[in-house]
């Protein structure tokens, strides 16, 4: 971490990644996400950029599979950032309830292996 130039560094990267994610139909970022990037006056939900890589937390839109969602996220992030992308599917947007879910602190979760 060096000086925080507003046009580079984690803040700008988080915004660019968020914009890329928002173009995906298969996932949604949501405000209840456990990770986010705090910028002056706002928070970029669901995206955190750190030295070790990028963390993305999103809800998958039913009936997207987890694998499709993760691939879509990585494909969307790739042009914007080169780091490793850890994807957490922390919610699912079902067809019977338009509200985006997301409840408080995340419970347990397990990793998926890549096939």
């Amino acid at each position: 971490m060096t000086s925080q130039d507003p046009d580079s560094g984690p803040a700008a990267a988080a915004d660019a990644i968020a914009a890329a994610l928002d173009r995906l139909p298969s996932v949604r970022r949501h405000a209840a996400s456990a990770v986010g990037t705090h910028l002056p006056g706002r928070r970029v939900h669901g995206v955190r950029v750190h030295e070790a890589g990028i963390e993305v937390h999103v809800a998958a839109v039913w009936p997207t599979t987890v694998d499709e969602a993760a691939r879509a996220v990585r494909a969307a992030v790739a042009p914007v950032a080169t780091a490793t992308v850890d994807v957490t599917i922390d919610d699912v947007l079902l067809d019977d309830q338009p509200r985006s879910g997301g409840h408080g602190p995340e419970g347990s979760a397990t990793e998926v292996s890549h096939v």
């Binding site: 987890v66 993760a70 850890d86 957490t88 079902l94 397990t110």
Partner: peptide, 28 residues
């Protein structure tokens, strides 16, 4: 189930982990 790093699929875009929250499993 084949673990990470499988070079079989074309895109090896910055790998990384994929995690599913248990409540997602439950809601599904």
């Amino acid at each position: 189930e084949a673990s990470v790093g499988a070079s079989t699929d074309g895109h090896v875009l910055g790998r990384g982990r994929t995690v599913i929250a248990d409540r997602v499993l439950e809601r599904l």
